[in-house]
Nucleic acid binder design. Structure first.
Lengths: 120, 120
DNA sequence: AACCGTTATGTTGAAATAAACATAACGGTA
DNA sequence: TACCGTTATGTTTATTTCAACATAACGGTT
């Protein structure tokens, strides 16, 4: 039994505009230079991945990925300057929160949840 | 655009063994003395609520709610001693994490996400 | 111009999750 | 014993979410 979290950005109504899933996608795009490859590397299907970054960009009102199609390579995708900044910032945010959670779990819940006396 | 979280306890495979939803349910049970009423007050349907506490109890290996059926009142539900402890601990845990998140958001993301220069 | 791999979308199917419906069991009270 | 409101479950339907399938557009290369 362990504590888990889901982190995301939301805009009142719609949920999940940005989160760990999209973060990982950005990461993979940076690494592979292609949305197709990025999606494949995450086992996620291109269609979904494409829709995800589209949604995130719409929500943030800024482009995260610079995409090109055609050409000898078929096309490519790379992060925009802003995309890189978001990627890096989210990483720090994530780590910071994760750290806080583990400490809080330790302080408030661990003993109660995992603690010994199973009277019933 | 605001930061959100979902907190839960999980056990490797199965997810969502305990979380804010079940926390609120416990809260409502304590307040109303009845699972029926608790569910109704949360607009959740008795069947689901019942299954939820069942699942949580199984996951934690302990009873959270003392239930009785029949009698002049028809029946009743109240928290066990352990249920109360879990309830209170989760509340503190929740608040602590929420607080940490807001600080982390401020530090790492706010300006980037909500910040002015919308060049594109 | 034909080819290739990637981006760009619509559409359809499958799987997980939750809501809705339907009964049965219980046990004080009248 | 009949009644009532609640707990206890099974079952069936609706909703939401994601995977799968299908095509078109693009644009350097050959």
């Amino acid at each position: 039994m362990k504590p888990g979290i889901k982190l995301f950005l939301h805009d009142d109504d719609a949920g999940g505009l940005f989160g760990d899933g999209k973060y990982q996608l950005l990461l993979a795009i940076r690494e592979h230079g292609s949305l197709q490859e990025a999606a494949r590397s995450l086992g996620r299907g291109y269609r979904k991945a494409w829709g995800d970054i589209r949604k995130a960009e719409k929500a943030l009102g800024r482009k995260l990925v610079k995409r090109a199609r055609g050409g000898s390579t078929g096309g490519s995708s790379e992060l925009t300057e802003y995309g890189i900044r978001v990627l890096d910032a989210w990483k720090e945010y994530r780590v910071s929160v994760q750290d806080g959670i583990e400490k809080a779990y330790e302080r408030y819940l661990r003993e109660l949840i995992e603690g010994g006396n199973n009277d019933r």
